[in-house]
């Protein structure tokens, strides 16, 4: 095999890391950060190093080749990996370590919501998709529910498309609409942070750009962490970008830095399209 000077096998280049602390750069408080985070599938360590800090009301993108651990990292943040993988270390949400077993994961997930790779609306009406979690938590006031449906569908920029068919099955929507419905569903319970796991990977370009617009609007109210393997997408919408490779976050910086002058060689190679 031919080893190019920049390959991960040369001169220990992959120990080279550059992780910035956004709180030193901007004036945004940090709402979520990980310390000493390790993730294991059985005996297999999937995340070795990935300590990042996510600033409030910003979009942070996690990029990297498939299998780099970016999704695993993201899913650990609201403990969706519980029962699937073992996660050690601290996950500080506004200073509270939510990776402790005593933490009520259900309450925590109401603050740290998640949207998945494949749109997963429930086989219920659009209206019921949005109100389902609220109803389960005892909200019964019809007017309040109507209001939440309207605001969250508007926030997810899908209100105009579905306002006349709220009672229709959510499964009848197009893929892109379904995904925005899922965002509306997540937003309806008024979370603090939204985690998105490659939300556009199953969508066509038009739907994707609509979704991106939506995310840019949502950032006014929410802190967003998004995994994407579409580098252009990261460049278009995110404020910060982390580059993952082989279970490590190698570089984390303002997005413009990552895409114009990355400090880590591997990031440079990835952003330039040399691998991944």
């Amino acid at each position: 095999m031919l080893i190019s000077p920049s390959s991960p096998y040369s001169n220990g280049g992959w120990l080279e890391r550059n992780i910035v602390d956004p709180s030193l750069k901007g004036q945004q408080p940090i709402v979520l950060e990980t310390k000493q985070l390790h993730v294991y599938y059985g005996d297999n360590e999937a995340i070795h190093e990935g300590d990042l800090k996510f600033p409030e009301h910003r979009i942070s993108a996690l990029i990297g080749p498939s299998g780099s651990g970016k999704s695993t990292y993201l899913r650990s943040l609201n403990r969706m990996n519980d029962g699937i993988a073992r996660v050690t270390g601290e996950i500080l949400y506004r200073g509270v370590d939510i990776n402790r077993p005593e933490i009520d994961v259900y309450k925590m997930r109401r603050r740290i919501g998640m949207v998945f790779q494949r749109p997963n609306p429930f086989s219920k009406s659009i209206y019921d998709n949005i109100t389902f979690a609220l109803k389960r938590r005892g909200v019964t006031d019809k007017r309040k529910l109507d209001e939440v449906v309207e605001t969250s569908l508007k926030q997810a920029a899908i209100w105009d498309e579905v306002k006349d068919k709220l009672k229709k099955s959510a499964l009848a929507l197009s893929g892109g609409q379904q995904q925005r419905l899922c965002i509306a569903r997540a937003v309806a319970i008024k979370p603090d942070i939204l985690l998105l796991d490659e939300p556009a990977s199953a969508l066509d370009p038009v739907s994707t750009s609509k979704l991106e617009e939506t995310l840019l609007q949502l950032k006014e109210d929410y802190t967003i962490v998004i995994v994407t393997h579409n580098m252009q997408q990261a460049a278009r919408i995110s404020d910060y970008t982390a580059f993952f490779n082989m279970g490590r976050a190698l570089e984390y910086d303002e997005t413009s830095q990552i895409f114009t002058s990355p400090k880590v060689q591997l990031t440079n190679n990835y952003v330039a399209g040399d691998f991944g």
Partner: peptide
Amino acid sequence: EQLLKRSKAA
């Protein structure tokens, strides 16, 4: 305190 309190879901 909020996050440590056992929720209805739990």
